[in-house]
Design a protein around this nucleic acid. Structure first.
Lengths: 204, 204
DNA sequence: AGCTATTCATACCGAACGGTATATAGTGAC
DNA sequence: GTCACTATATACCGTTCGGTATGAATAGCT
């Protein structure tokens, strides 16, 4: 309860690894294998630390996944939050599709989408994980729906196309792209998918 | 695999369970959990048999999955092979989408698609499984591509739309539908997805 | 120096994993 | 009845799973 004399970081022995670097390595393992198939052994090996260090720094496997998911959304899904700033619904869709394409065709990241991988299949133990990812996805979707409702008010859509339905349709394409990207589709094939989707995008 | 005569034709003690029934139960477990998350304990419990009986009858977990996958394609994916008989590419697409919708909205089957679930994420042990499912999907896709090439020759498509690209686009939507169906989307939402996809389907 | 706090490395925990050895029980053939 | 054969049930195998107890090492504080 004494005063704060210095900017003392902490008392004990300093950790010998960088939190962010280790978390990024963990993210890649989850991204490549999914939550359940990512074993603690593979995680610690990729992160370059031992299990007690991991548990001390991140809590447990589920907490580590949550922190990795935060990092993923912050660094890899930024295009989704910025896409709503595009001037038209069509431009929003194009930015989403091209952002997803860029992610799938990046040469240094794992293929597929962490969210898709984590919600596709899971046993009972991973259901809280699935629920959390679904919750985050729902809030992303809601933002796009709001943007499309404005677009509808601006008269951008033909009759009979609901904003929520269009968003679901657009997300289905992006989820399909992530699946195909994770199943060995080539860059060119995924680009074709984006071009086709844009070619059929409804115009008034 | 062969017929099951009332009078046992072989010598030893007759098995006390029905192969097809047990296989159908195994399929539901794989379908609900994915290959890796489906444990032998859950499989044997659902099939109502013990592990030695399972191994004697089906080989091992991977062989059981292959037989379950055969059953799945035979019973649940029949709409895919029959869809190519539709008169136009648009009708083919509609039959595929509505067939997928019917599967996702069936009240007695697990949600999602076994193929999607099995290829989305897997550790190293399940990679042969993933490869097998991808192989079968490729052959399904190839059949639709051939049908669409004929449709293109018939002048059904606008300029600039390649049959292979359209099939990839269509499959992406169906894969997205399977993902959303497995993530708790309602019947009405999935039907909306189909209607939207049909509404934007390209016409010449 | 001592004390306290934190990290690191090894070795270990109970449980669950896929897969089996073994012994018993039920069948047709002789 | 006896034999050959197969399915059943129990109990078990080695391995891997997520997660920890333990003690040595390293730092700041007094």
């Amino acid at each position: 309860m004494n005063s704060l004399p210095k900017i003392s970081i902490c008392k004990g022995r300093p950790r010998e690894f960088d939190l962010e670097t280790a978390l990024a390595a963990a993210l890649r393992v989850f991204w490549k294998n999914g939550y359940e198939a990512a074993s603690m052994a593979e995680l610690t090996a990729a992160m370059g630390i031992t299990k007690p260090s991991l548990y001390a720094a991140f809590g447990n496997k589920e907490a580590l996944f949550h922190k990795a998911l935060d990092l993923y959304e912050r660094e890899k899904l930024a295009y989704m939050t910025s896409a709503v700033e595009a001037p038209t619904a069509r431009a929003v869709a194009e930015r989403l599709l091209r952002g997803a394409l860029e992610m799938q065709t990046s040469t240094c990241d794992p293929k597929g989408c962490l969210g898709v991988i984590s919600t596709a299949a899971c046993g009972v133990e991973a259901e809280p994980i699935k629920a959390e990812v679904m919750k985050r996805r729902a809030s992303s979707e809601a933002a796009i729906v709001r943007r499309f409702e404005q677009a509808k008010a601006d008269g951008e859509f033909p009759e009979g196309l609901e904003p929520a339905a269009l968003v679901r349709y657009l997300f289905a394409i992006m989820q399909g792209m992530a699946l195909q990207g994770g199943s060995g589709a080539t860059c060119a094939e995924l680009r074709q998918l984006v071009e086709t989707s844009m070619a059929v995008w409804p115009t008034k």
